[in-house]
């Protein structure tokens, strides 16, 4: 039973559910819109003063908004009693993790696109100056958030007070993604250059947590 088919099936099912029940996308979109609007109002007028802070603020916004999406990512399973369906796959359950993480990754990339548009409109961020670099940082950062986030979302789905617990569990672990991505995004927008090493550290982070998620998920789906 090829695991890749299982991962692909899980990913497609999650996207189909997202398209059909749209509340996850709606929550994230509205929340991001509100916060960017608040930022544009409260940030000081002069662009160069705000300029240095905007990348960091955008990444913090992405992290906070992704919590809404991640908290919902296993809701469909627990409501439908379908955790058993996922746990009953005839291959390593790590593939289910990859499918779920893939669906969350796509959701986060869509969110990033939306936030980028908002930032361009409200915070007049000129993305064209950054070009592919900003997109690359976004993708690597989203993968990091999706892998750690999916694993911790699965952990906290059956635990009391999970709305409180998921952020507490997640934030210390994703601090590296936040810090590195904020710096690399700032650099791509013309900020002070950062050593190339940090692209490697970000890539290594993603690789390590996708692997851990894969190997550990067998136990996580067992209740």
């Amino acid at each position: 039973m090829s695991g890749a088919r299982v991962a692909w099936a899980v990913l497609r099912k999650d996207l189909l559910l997202d398209l059909r029940s749209r509340d996850r996308a709606g929550h994230m979109g509205v929340f991001a819109f509100l916060v960017v609007a608040l930022l544009s109002i409260t940030l000081p007028e002069s662009p160069e003063a705000a300029g240095a802070w905007v990348p960091a603020l955008l990444w913090i916004l992405l992290l906070l908004t992704s919590i809404l999406g991640l908290a919902r990512s296993f809701a469909a399973e627990s409501e439908a009693g379908a955790v058993a369906t996922l746990a009953g796959v005839a291959c390593d359950r790590g593939w289910v993790f990859l499918g779920k993480a893939g669906a969350n990754l796509i959701a986060l990339l869509a969110l990033q696109l939306w936030v980028a548009v908002l930032a361009a409109v409200f915070l007049d961020v000129r993305w064209e100056a950054a070009g592919w670099r900003a997109a690359a940082v976004g993708a690597l950062g989203a993968l990091g958030l999706a892998s750690v986030g999916t694993l911790l979302a699965a952990l906290s789905v059956s635990v009391r007070a999970r709305e409180f617990l998921l952020p507490v569990l997640l934030f210390p672990l994703v601090l590296p993604v936040l810090v590195i991505c904020a710096r690399l995004t700032a650099e791509s927008l013309g900020g002070d250059p950062t050593p190339g090493l940090w692209w490697g550290v970000l890539g290594l982070y993603d690789w390590v947590f996708v692997l851990i998620g894969y190997f550990v998920f067998d136990h996580v789906l067992e209740d």
Binding site: K13, G81, T85, G88
Partner: peptide, 20 residues
């Protein structure tokens, strides 16, 4: 994993996604 392929399980919950 191989054994799971030979097991069919229906819990108290049918385990189906309501929106699908």
């Amino acid at each position: 994993a191989e054994l799971r392929g030979r097991i069919g399980y229906l819990g108290a919950e049918p385990g189906l996604y309501g929106e699908l």
